[in-house]
Design a binder for these strands. Structure first.
Length: 444
RNA sequence: GUGGGUGUAGCUCAGUUGGUUAGAGCACCAGAUUGUGGUUCUGGGGGUCGGGGGUUCGAGUCCCCUUACCCACCCCA
């Protein structure tokens, strides 16, 4: 049996100790931003009933149509489970689960206003490429129970704050649009189909092949096609804003106003059309133009219909999600964050104290002392490979420890220990009883 | 799902028009006289050259297939 080594599954990543430094920094930044605005953390299961996503994201969305990690509910021999309809699916995004938890928790009745955030892995069965993985981490925020456009602006400002704290500059751009209310959307959809029909429904369509496809699945997407010819053909297409109801229009204006009130002049961008069904009114994206083609950092919007659609009381809501992977890519390109921001996390990878046993007979005492110091809260390490004293000092240096404690026959006889500062190469011999105080001073 | 690129030690790569036991740097391990470090020196472990088939006297080096990864499209975080 020639055992071929098993590798990580396609589209997944190992986060090794040094990789985690950045990730942990992203996590704590996200938490700090969210908590500063009194958003509370939630953790929902990594998998849900498949129906949850079919209902919330829409059967025609790409995510549901071809990117779901679905497993059958039961795998009994002989049974023929229908995973597609009656199975579990690893969550491809966080909003559906949050809405489900909101409904299930009965918040509409006793505490309709809920501001939540989450950080965790999401799964999509896609072909991996740069900035896109099958398992990825998202930071998301969802605020339930308020339909005021000022809340939309608050949510956007959280996303902005996240990137600003990571070191992004003032070039950060908020692009906004509105999807109107469902009735507006239906009218618009009909008008669009009417408008595009002649372009698509002919043997030799002037539109690109993708657009012909999109026409069936999601007409809105024709609008953000990048093919030059298609862009031309989009001239004169029906404008949603001309069909939108007064309330939705007002909402959008107040949203834009609230944003500029917070100091973020938004950019109107009619091509922003989120791919998931549940969005209503506000949709937005954060961009960082210096990044060029990969400038999109965050996407979000309002989904006033989702909770009711899923069987809860009608509850307005708004949120966003930020992918860690694109964020990491952007940070790398921008040479961010500054090393100082990560210094503490890096430092935690190294021991503070490395204990050296001069001879074999000293090892037992070294282990005892190591154990004691750990209980005091110091990060301590020592050798378990019978290395020579010399090699232990090498090990101590390599480990980036700050101090070395040396225990030999002389020290043990006198109840003392040598404390060596590896940065200054200075050492002193002290009574064991005085050790905690000295360490506290040296490692402050 | 479609198209393109790549695949030599843990990592970064050399390997001349196919030629004999496949190399380097870094990393790792051990030493350089007796209780002390990141420099230096010496030695050592580690590769069925992604896998399979073919051409050839002979292939890491050419051809085919396959697989993994990467990149782009689609879509999106």
């Amino acid at each position: 049996m020639s055992a071929e080594p098993i590798r990580n599954a396609r589209g997944t990543r190992d986060f090794l100790p040094s990789d985690l430094v950045l990730v942990q920094h992203l996590e704590r930044t996200a938490q700090a931003v969210a908590k500063s605005a009194c958003y509370q953390e939630i953790r929902t299961p990594l998998f849900e009933e498949t129906r949850l996503f079919q209902r919330s994201l829409g059967e025609t969305s790409d995510v549901v149509a071809k990117e779901m990690f679905t497993v059958p509910k039961r795998v009994e021999p002989g049974a023929s489970p229908n995973a597609g309809q009656d199975g579990y699916t690893f969550r491809p995004e966080g909003t559906a689960s949050a809405a489900r938890a909101y409904i299930q928790g009965g918040f509409a009745a006793h505490a309709p206003l809920q501001k939540w955030f989450y950080i965790g892995p999401m799964f999509r069965y896609e072909r991996p490429q740069k900035g896109r993985e099958r398992q990825f981490t998202q930071f998301g925020v969802e605020a339930f129970g308020v339909q005021s456009p000022e809340l939309d602006a608050e949510v956007v400002s959280l996303a902005l704050d996240f990137f600003l704290r990571l070191g992004f500059g003032e070039e950060l751009q908020v692009r906004i649009n509105s999807m109107g209310d469902p009735a507006d959307r239906h009218r618009w959809s009909a008008k669009l189909k009417e408008f595009f029909q002649p372009q698509v429904d002919v043997p030799d369509s002037p539109r690109c092949a993708d657009c012909v496809q999109r026409f069936q699945r999601n007409v809105f997407r024709l609008l953000d096609c990048k093919v030059p010819r298609c862009i031309e053909l989009n001239q004169g297409a029906p404008d949603l804003f001309a069909l939108m109801g007064e309330e939705a229009l007002q909402h959008h204006h107040r949203f834009a106003q609230a944003l500029s009130n917070l100091g973020h002049q938004p950019v109107e961008d009619r091509s922003i059309v989120r791919g998931l069904d549940y969005y209503t009114r506000t949709v937005f994206e954060l961009h960082y133009p210096p990044l060029g083609s990969r400038s999109a950092l965050c996407g979000g919007g309002r989904y006033d219909g989702l909770v009711a659609e899923m069987g809860g009381r009608p509850t307005p809501a708004v949120g966003f999600s930020i992918g860690f992977t694109p964020t990491e890519l952007a940070l790398a390109e921008l040479k961010l964050p500054p090393a100082a921001d990560l210094a503490d996390l890096h430092a935690q990878l190294a021991p503070q104290i490395y204990l050296v046993a001069i001879a074999e007979e000293d090892r037992a005492d070294v282990l005892r002392l190591t154990h004691r110091l750990r209980q005091h809260g110091w990060r301590c390490s020592c050798d378990y490979r019978q290395k020579s004293a010399k090699a232990q000092f090498k090990e101590a240096a390599k480990s980036k420890a700050i101090l070395a404690l040396v225990l030999g026959a002389e020290e043990r006889a006198a109840d003392q220990v040598v404390v060596k500062d590896l940065r200054l190469q200075e050492e002193q011999r002290v009574e064991i009883s005085a050790l905690p105080a000295l360490l506290a001073q040296l490692l402050a």
